[in-house]
């Protein structure tokens, strides 16, 4: 029995990374996803801060889930989330001023990131602390992967570098458009397109196999 329950735990963890990836599948948390991914460094900073807030607030929400009355639960969640966002805000300011300047008000805007409130309402308010933390870690990793995917493509094409290291040599003419806002829309659109193409092909193959077996 313990084996099956640990299997389920892994399922919960993997769910957020692939099957229900918050950005590519659920299309949540679009604003930070698009706004801060013009370089990999910013994307990672944003991802790590979001993971911290997500994990801590999921844990706390799961702890208090039996005490908080139903009518005020959303307000409670928002208060919990904004407390952790304030912590992150001050920590980033203390650790690195350039990152703080680059992310700007988007650190404060983690409060209204729908992924965090969504997980608090949909998962942490109904599950044990352990499960909720696992789910939050999975979702957070999924979010980070999506951010790095976007930031990687945008920095690679728009600046010819990855994490600030130039890759293509001095003759590369950067596509500045990818660093500008419209490049963010295009890149995310292209990723979504790629994912739905993969899904479509998988569905077609499954249908074919079924036909053959019949």
């Amino acid at each position: 029995m313990s084996e099956s329950s640990s299997n389920r735990d892994i399922q919960v963890l993997l769910n957020g990374i692939w099957k229900e990836n918050p950005v590519f599948v659920q299309v949540l948390g679009m604003c930070p996803t698009l706004a801060v991914t013009n370089s990999v460094r910013n994307a990672i900073a944003m991802g790590v801060s979001t993971v911290f807030v997500l994990v801590m607030s999921s844990m706390l929400v799961a702890m208090v889930r039996k005490i908080v009355p139903k009518q005020v639960r959303i307000a409670t969640y928002i208060l919990i989330i904004s407390t952790f966002v304030t912590i992150v805000d001050y920590v980033i300011k203390a650790v690195s001023i350039p990152v703080y300047k680059a992310l700007g008000p988007f650190i404060a805007l983690i409060v209204v990131n729908c992924i965090i409130l969504g997980r608090a309402e949909a998962f942490a308010s109904k599950n044990t602390v352990y499960r909720s933390v696992l789910d939050a870690i999975g979702m957070g990793i999924g979010f980070c992967i999506a951010l790095v995917c976007l930031g990687g493509v945008r920095e690679l094409l728009g600046n010819g570098s990855f994490l600030g290291v130039p890759l293509f040599g001095p003759y590369y003419e950067p596509w500045v458009i990818f660093l500008l806002p419209s490049g963010g829309f295009f890149t995310l659109g292209a990723w979504l397109l790629a994912f739905s193409l993969i899904k479509e092909r998988k569905a077609r193959r499954a249908a074919q196999e079924q036909e053959q077996s019949v």
Partner: peptide
């Protein structure tokens, strides 16, 4: 195209719009 329906094509349109606003 089927694969692009929904959010993907909306994001592409938003990208072009954003370029226009530039």
């Amino acid at each position: 195209p089927n694969a692009a329906k929904g959010t993907a094509v909306a994001l592409m349109v938003a990208g072009i719009l954003s370029m226009a606003f530039m």
